[in-house]
Design a protein around this nucleic acid. Sequence first.
RNA 1: GGAGAGGUGGCAGAGUGGUCGAAUGCGACGGUCUCGAAAACCGUUAUACCUUCGGGUAUCGAGAGUUCGAAUCUCUCCCUCUCCGCCA
Length: 426
Amino acid sequence: MLDIKLIREQPDVVRAGIHAKHSEDVVDQVLDLDRERRAIIQEVEVLKSRRNTVSEDIAKLKRAKENADEKIAEMKGVGDEIADLDNRLREKELALNLLLDTIPNMPHPSVPIGNDASGNVEMKRWSPNGDQSAFTKREGLDHLALGERHKLFDFKRGAKIAAAGFPVYTGRGAQLERAFINFMLDLHTRAHGYTEVLPPFFVNSPSLRGTGQFPKFADQVYHMPEDQLYAIPTAEVPVTNLYADEVLTMESLPLMHCAFSACFRREAGSYGKDTRGFLRVHQFNKVELVKFVLPETSYEEHEKLTADAERVLELLEIPYRRMLCCTGDQSFSNTKQYDLEVWAPVEGNWLEASSCSNFEDFQARRANIRFRREQKAKPEFVHTLNGSGLATSRLMVAFLETYQQPDGTIAIPEVLHPYLPFSAIE
RNA sequence: GGAGAGGUGGCAGAGUGGUCGAAUGCGACGGUCUCGAAAACCGUUAUACCUUCGGGUAUCGAGAGUUCGAAUCUCUCCCUCUCCGCCA
């Protein structure tokens, strides 16, 4: 959520941001509602002030055992008038908040203007020893064929017991998946200073609103109507909302969490697009990085968080590139977004394995997450950041394709050996 | 699932219709005292919104109701705790 004061004072700046993100321009409606809202507030507060004064007078008269009937009669109608105005006020505020919830966060000046992914800018490319030939298409089996050959997954049975897009990991596939997760969690907790959290996989709707999934992406989230709970699309939701309605101390910042969770996404509207195997699934595993930081440090922290995610790929020796997402491709809630794309040599394609974002105070304002610089200072909103570090589904694709040997076996890099009872999939 | 208890300021804890945004204690902060500290004493100690910047309004788990007036009475919901049952 944007600060209403920003919209009031710099409507053109907000309009420009909305257009850059291809969102609906509701600025004029917001300004109108804001004006009407404030007019009603002023009107009703005069009445409330009078009611308070007269009620006090009545109390004094009663205590003095004097007659207060006249004053009571005078106030008879005022209560109704106030209730009436309060109702109108509530309507205006409801409408205003509904609109405010649909306004995206403003892009950072460093973000290129663009319509879609084609406007994204490649910032860097990494491969072991800087070998550029790593980024070429190679002959070989794709992840589905490799999975079948070594019995690593069972998509058919996943579809039988749940639905298409709910993969089953089997045997060494399950062990490899678990190794990825443990390796990443250990790296982030031991080397990068994150504190691990294992959150609930279901959350309530205020949490989804807090991080910005609701109301805009409500149709992408699995819903359990009986219990009014939603399956998390990412651990970002429970972990960021951990501190909703709290005031953090200065010393606790930056507060850094990493969290494993399964992630659930309906992917409504994207059927038929990259649906093979792990390329697009309804349930996948992810280790998420979440930071709560001082506002003045958030861009620096964003770089560090992205580097922490990149470190996973570097240690696994998976070639990748970092993309700076343009305004048209970045998400609703963030100001700046880096995507990490792994190179899948057999697909001959880049696959998004991570998305690292700075939200500034957009989520903090929605979820009401604040901090205090000093004991008596006014609370301020923190800046929140998060990034996948990483999602395993696309990583698995790139990993299998990258590490397959000419004989069809799959090598396992040294860093994963402590996590596996085998050193190659043969 | 059944039975009961309870949700008040950073914490503890009073308050059952009227100077109650809320006693008191603790904590925290500032000051006096001290070479310094402790103790003692004095003071300060929520947040948000509106504002013609004087001030005003709201908030005692949430919402609705009764009333001139609600932390206090009524209703609905949510949450926490205890006991019993069931259970990974």
